[in-house]
Design a binder for these strands. Structure first.
Length: 262
DNA sequence: AGTACCACCTGACGGC
DNA sequence: TGCCGTCAGGTGGTAC
């Protein structure tokens, strides 16, 4: 479930491994993940180098000179792996980049729900995709402005990439748990102080997760995610973690800690 | 505008 | 042991 923290870790990984090496070629094992013809992808990438990276929400962009970007989206099961020996390639490698130093970068995507694309205009790409501002980049005033006049439930709003980019099903549960808000709380029921609490929880959860390499085993004991299964114990008060449906998604929360405002 | 529901896809898991 | 239905969850489309 690559959400913002997971993709940020991929970005840091790419920065530490795959930059400034000439890409000699690439292999596409499954072209379902491509948003453009394989030959076009090859034409854009072959002979170039990744010079820097950017992340926007759940999207990762790798810049090639002069101003051309490889876009990677990871769907539910994607990941990156940089390695030397061919037999170290992950099982579900879909696109494999070959560098001139003998190393390779694999885009692995088990369920084929990810996307690989090219753009020469990153800002416009984000705009065309109707992505809102990145969850770690926007300030409180903007956060508040984007939620005002929404009539739906807060969990749905947090997961809506047009409002804020980067938060998915798992981290929305964690943010709402830390903010002590019921996932079905109406956005219109949140006053300014509660919105501030939510905003602070959002930033804290995402940054903490990044600091933990998005690895639930390293999360603080106060986090819900490692207990995010039916009938597990709430890390706050030992209450019973409960599963409900919110806009068709599974939401986990603690009914004792997260009450609906009345 | 918001929600419910379906589909895409693969593999893990539980039931029998 | 082995088959089968169900589910996960990001995104997008459709119907209401």
């Amino acid at each position: 479930m690559p959400e913002l923290p997971d993709v940020e870790v991929f970005k840091q990984y790419a920065d530490a491994t795959a930059l400034h090496q000439t890409i000699e070629g690439l292999d596409v094992t499954r072209d379902e993940v491509l948003n453009l013809p394989e030959q076009e992808l090859k034409a854009h990438v072959t002979g170039r180098r990744f010079e820097s990276t950017r992340r926007h929400g759940k999207h990762l962009f790798l810049r090639m000179e002069p101003d051309n970007w490889l876009m990677l989206h990871f769907g539910m099961t994607g990941e990156l792996k940089y390695f030397k020996k061919e037999n170290q390639a992950p099982v579900h490698t879909r696109v494999l980049f070959h560098f001139d130093n003998g190393y390779h970068l694999a885009y692995d995507c088990q369920r084929l729900l990810g996307e690989v694309d090219i753009t020469d205009d990153l800002e416009n790409y984000i705009k065309e995709r109707e992505l809102g501002p990145d969850a770690l980049s926007l300030d409180f005033d903007s956060f508040k402005a984007r939620l005002e006049n929404r009539r739906g439930m807060i969990k749905s709003a947090l997961m809506n990439q047009e409002i804020i980019a980067g938060i998915g099903n798992v981290y929305s549960d964690e943010i709402l748990f830390q903010a002590r808000l019921h996932p079905k709380t109406k956005v219109s029921d949140l006053d300014k102080d509660t919105l501030k609490t939510l905003f602070d929880a959002m930033r804290d959860v995402l940054q903490t997760a990044i600091d933990c390499q998005a690895d639930p085993d390293q999360f603080p004991a106060s986090f819900l995610i490692p207990h995010r299964s039916k009938d597990d114990d709430c890390p706050q008060d030992g209450g019973e973690v409960t599963q409900i449906k919110v806009s068709g998604r599974n939401a986990y929360y603690c009914p004792d800690c997260q009450k609906m405002p009345s």
